[in-house]
Amino acid sequence: MGEAIAFYTLAAFILGFAVLVITTKDTVHSVLFLVLDFLFVAALYVMLNAPFLAAIQVLVYAGGIVVLYLFVVMLVNLKRLPEAFQDPNRHGRIGLILSVAVLLELAAIAALGVGSVAPVRTAARALPVTGNTEQVGWMLYTSYLIPFEIASMLLLVAMIGAIVLAKREL
């Protein structure tokens, strides 16, 4: 019961703020709603027994990435509204309808498909450590070491790329 209440409350906030993010006119307000959305997603992670991911979500998304967005919104000082011009070939409404169709399709698959298939129950993976953070760290540094290194290379490349792109003259 408590789980259901928590889930529906969090889901309502997550979806509500997500809708506000894409509908608000003022970009700064939109960024603020995005932060709130991420905080509620972090709360959902706590509910799903993933406290490490929740902390990382707040630290990296809310405290890092969205601050970057806010910086860019403030640096990009627009003289005219960003949505003033519309390409006549753009069909926003068709996009909307198609998106809703995809949503219905996904919902149907989730609601009908899962019921017919017996849920897969694997035995809990035996790890030599206990605790969420320790387990995530253990997997990252053993089975997923190479993807982990690639991800760090990706971040390095992105960092250099961002500096090259954003700097006026090198």
Binding site: L53, A151, I163
Partner: peptide, 19 residues
């Protein structure tokens, strides 16, 4: 964790392009 790392990279490069 990997998805978050990719999101961070994407945001950095994307915002650089926007600027």
């Amino acid at each position: 964790v990997f998805v978050i790392a990719v999101a961070a990279a994407e945001a950095a490069v994307g915002l650089g392009i926007i600027l």
